[in-house]
């Protein structure tokens, strides 16, 4: 099973302040721990929301809202994807993220087998992906 660990923004990351050397070292150590345990599948950090945008849909209309966004505590600042055999194991890894304050959200990644493959819409999506998916074969 794959789990995503999502880390929320704080005022500093939203202000675009680069992380301290200590934090970078601690995060590097944490990533090493994940790699050595054979559970690390991927991770990315996100820039401050000021460099991003949102597309909001209202029926037939949509609008584009440029960042920054104000609700700092609900913004995502980065994520890891790990392999874990249970939610508890993913939580145990989340507990080890070296941060003093903030939140790590643990979410299970949807598995291909979660879909009903006979569903017409799923089949159509699959057909489209087969035709169009870039990087389908690396």
């Amino acid at each position: 099973m794959k789990y995503m660990l999502l880390i929320t923004s704080d005022a500093a990351s939203e202000a675009g302040v680069p992380p301290s050397r200590e934090l970078i070292a601690a995060m590097g150590g944490y990533n090493d721990e994940l790699i050595k345990a054979g559970v690390f599948l991927g991770a990315e950090g996100l820039r401050a929301s000021s460099s991003g945008a949102r597309v909001a849909f209202h029926g037939d209309e949509h609008e584009i809202i440029d960042g920054p966004f104000t609700e700092t505590k609900e913004l995502i600042a980065g994520f890891w994807i790990i392999q874990a055999s249970s939610k508890e194991e993913a939580v145990a890894w989340a507990e080890r993220v070296p941060i003093g304050s903030g939140t790590i959200e643990v979410r299970r990644v949807v598995d291909p087998s979660d879909f009903d493959r006979d569903d017409e819409h799923v089949q159509r999506e699959v057909a489209w992906r087969t035709e169009n998916e870039p990087g389908f074969a690396s």
Partner: peptide, 30 residues
């Protein structure tokens, strides 16, 4: 995710729906 039907019958490699392959995993394999 692609090697069996919904009821668990095997699907041969060449008949598998390749969109169901795990492409993140393929990249790691490569």
């Amino acid at each position: 995710g692609a090697r069996t039907t919904a009821v668990g019958l095997p699907i041969l490699l060449l008949d598998q729906d390749r969109a169901r392959w795990d492409h993140l995993q393929i990249q790691r394999g490569l």
